[in-house]
Design a protein around this nucleic acid. Structure first.
Length: 671
RNA sequence: AGGGGAUUGGUGUAACGGUAGCACGACUGACUCUGACUCAGUUAGUCUAGGUUCAAAUCCUAGAUCCCCUGCCA
């Protein structure tokens, strides 16, 4: 896993070259990062990028990484979120409280006293004042880019502000009665600098500090101080904070005004001023990620909870069985830039397959069982079919994983998909006469379909009959006497001995949304919900899987389920809804499995209707691609003599390309 | 409108005045006791228009498009 270089490495390298942050006693340059979530929701795959980035930098530069709760707003924050965040960060592997890069666990609310002292200092320096405008009045007086904001309290004497500020802390005033504002620039084109609020009154109990405070700092004021106090060198955040950087710097500079490097003078020693750096967040397709929307999905019962396996939350991914290594690999893979881009969720699936292919034990399972009867299979004297024990490799990719014993007999279960009474072309699995090809039962015998039974009432296939070739035991045909190559069936299918198969509930998940960008079409992501994103099937697994796959509870990381590849089907992980004997806490003593991700399937006869393989453009996308206004697209199409289309007909890649070529030669007249 | 950012194949990302490369996807083929994996090949790109230069994705000028900013959210 070689780390991909990106612009933040360049910035840090330049800092190191200039000695900006100093060195440890052993000469190592100081690099200290942090992940600062607000505990007002569950962490999701987007946060994972930030965590991996920050922790990764600490690793690469042999520095430190802090986990810090940015808990400055008690009206939104909650204990359950604090607990889940700690679990999720641990699960991802960002070791904030142990190991060589552990910087520790912190709470912004632990700094409230220090922040309060700094705020008094700003007031005393004439850089902040108490403003008694109501929220509505502030909004009305906000001004426009051209006209400045106003506040009647801007020139209030400092001792009066100091006194009122003290009253704010003491709880003498109701919510919204007054704020502390920084005295910066009411006319700034950057609205963040128009005397931003530093403190507001919130009479509400706080999950970490309880009722000690009713005065809470705003993000901009608090965040730089948090970074400063913790000695953060590189304060990495997302793009939307770019407009806040001047404010971030202004606040630290304001604290440092009058301070000196050696602490002489009235205000003491200068405080640490870390560097804010912005990067583009991860935006997966077919997903919504904002906390507000995820909360809605949970509250409206569209999923079973924050950890529903379809959710993009880390808790959801973990429950589905996604290994943290795959999430990290994805974050490494997508890189770090300032370009807002969306990444195909299929890349997460790829990362998952990539990791699990190398590590997951193999087993067989049947999801939609169909009986397969071998007509010439030997029977015991009592009439029951003979049972053979076969030894299989647990993982062909990893011989060290050893072998497992699997029973074989004349009464088998196969997947219904692997038989077709009327097979399409290139169907390599079981088909009745006149089709006459051999099919290999994985690692066992060659069989040839002789017929099938149906339920006369429904017409459904109830059993498939076949004969086997005893000479193909182990799954290989003997080499003929003349030395010609042995027979090789085109198809190999998986199977289970019917008498030994263990029932299991298997949960199959699809994407929660059917549109690449949910809500883009109608403005409401609910319109793009996939109505059919969860299926439960009652299948069977081989006894080795039932004996070995367990849910592993772990209060530190939330716990996760063992994962296996069921051959030809995909990767499956034990769910906590499994019964107690499988490590879960489910009411029924059964094995419950989640499909983590299916295997890739290039079969021509059963195309999986995944996301469109053919790129199509909505009109908005096409217009964007062509760099014309959306309402001029019809005009452009007419100009190119292309078929008139309705506003809802998507355009193909070819059409968009043709249109682009046309517009190059014949640009639209200026509107 | 004012301010702050961004723009390289279908997608993501390198190249920091000197061969436009890599990964994913898609498509071919090979291999295969998983229609998986693996391997080989193909595909396709510098937002536009000018300029500087022996040489421009990179520097300059002008424009286009997209994103962010007028919470007592973060």
């Amino acid at each position: 896993m070689t780390a991909q270089r990106h612009f933040i490495h360049d910035l840090i390298d330049a800092d190191i070259a200039s000695g900006r942050w100093g060195t440890h006693p052993d000469g190592r340059p100081i690099v200290h990062t942090r992940f600062p979530p607000e505990p007002n929701g569950f962490l999701h795959i987007g946060h994972a990028k930030s965590i991996c980035l920050n922790f990764g930098l600490a690793e690469q530069y042999r520095g430190k990484f802090n986990l810090r709760f940015d808990d400055t707003n008690p009206s939104k924050e909650d204990r359950q979120y604090i607990d889940s965040i700690v679990r999720d960060v641990r699960w991802l592997g960002a070791a904030f409280d142990s190991g060589p890069h552990a910087g520790g666990l912190f709470h912004a609310s632990d700094y409230f006293e220090q922040m309060y002292a700094f705020a008094r200092e700003l007031i005393a320096k004439g850089l902040a004042y108490v403003c008694e405008l109501t929220p509505d009045q502030v909004a009305q007086r906000r001004g426009t880019p051209q006209t400045p904001a106003t506040s009647p309290h801007r020139d209030r004497p400092t001792d009066e502000s100091l006194r009122l500020f003290g009253q704010m802390r003491s709880g003498d005033h109701p919510n919204g009665a007054m704020t502390l504002r920084a005295k910066i620039d009411l006319a700034s084109p950057n609205f963040n600098l128009r005397d931003p609020v530093m403190y507001r009154i919130v009479h509400q109990s706080h999950p970490h500090t309880g009722d000690r405070w009713c005065l809470y700092p705003m993000y901009d004021w608090a965040h730089g101080i948090e970074d400063s106090l913790e000695g953060i060198t590189h304060s990495i955040c997302t793009l939307e904070f770019e407009n806040h950087r001047p404010l971030y710097d202004w606040f630290i500079d304001a604290i440092n005004a009058g301070r000196t490097p050696d602490g002489s003078g009235p205000w003491g020693k200068r405080v640490h001023h870390s560097q804010q750096i912005e990067f583009a967040k991860l935006r997966p397709t077919y997903t919504v990620l904002s906390k507000r929307n995820l909360l809605k999905i949970v509250e409206q019962g569209l999923v079973s909870g924050w950890d529903d396996p379809r959710m993009p939350t880390l808790a959801g991914l973990r429950r589905r069985g996604v290994p943290p290594q795959a999430v990290r690999a994805l974050c490494e893979d997508v890189g770090v830039t300032k370009v807002e881009s969306s990444i195909d969720v299929a890349r997460l699936d790829n990362a998952v397959r990539d990791h699990l292919n190398a590590t997951a034990p193999r087993a067989m399972a049947v999801l939609r069982p169909l009986r397969l009867v071998i007509e010439n299979w030997p029977t015991n004297p009592d009439g029951s079919p003979v049972v053979e024990m076969l030894d299989f490799q647990i993982n062909p990719e990893d011989p060290a994983a050893g072998t497992r014993r699997v029973p074989f007999s004349g009464h088998l279960l196969i997947d219904a998909d692997d038989f077709s009474a009327d097979p399409p072309k290139k169907f390599h699995r079981l088909a009745p006469p006149p089709h006459d090809h051999e099919v290999r039962l994985r690692w066992a015998y060659f069989v040839r379909c002789t017929g099938f039974d149906t339920d006369p009432a429904t017409g459904r296939v109830t059993a498939v009959r076949c004969t086997y070739d005893p000479a193909t035991r182990g799954g290989d045909a003997p080499t003929p006497a003349d030395g010609s190559p042995p027979r090789r069936p085109k198809g190999t299918i998986h199977w289970l001995s019917a008498a030994h198969a263990v029932p299991a509930e298997v949960r199959l998940f699809e994407r929660l949304f059917s549109a690449e960008h949910p809500g883009q079409r109608t403005g409401d992501w609910a319109d793009d919900l996939n109505p059919d994103s969860s299926h439960v099937v009652h299948g069977f697994v081989e006894s080795w899987a039932a004996d070995n796959l367990r849910f592993r509870p772990d209060p530190l990381t939330g716990g996760s389920g063992d994962c296996a590849q069921f051959e030809r089907l995909g990767y499956f992980a034990a769910d906590p809804d499994s019964g107690p004997r499988y490590g879960g806490s489910g009411a029924h003593d059964r094995l419950v499995l989640n499909r983590v991700v299916a295997l890739k399937d290039s079969r021509a006869d059963t195309p999986e209707p995944g996301p469109s393989a053919v790129r199509v453009y909505t009109h908005a996308e096409a217009a964007r691609e062509l760099r014309i206004k959306a309402d001029r697209l019809p005009e452009a199409l007419a100009s190119a003599a292309m078929a008139p289309i309705s506003a809802s007909t998507p355009l193909s890649l070819e059409q968009v390309r043709a249109l682009r070529e046309h517009l190059k030669k014949h640009p639209l007249p200026k509107a």
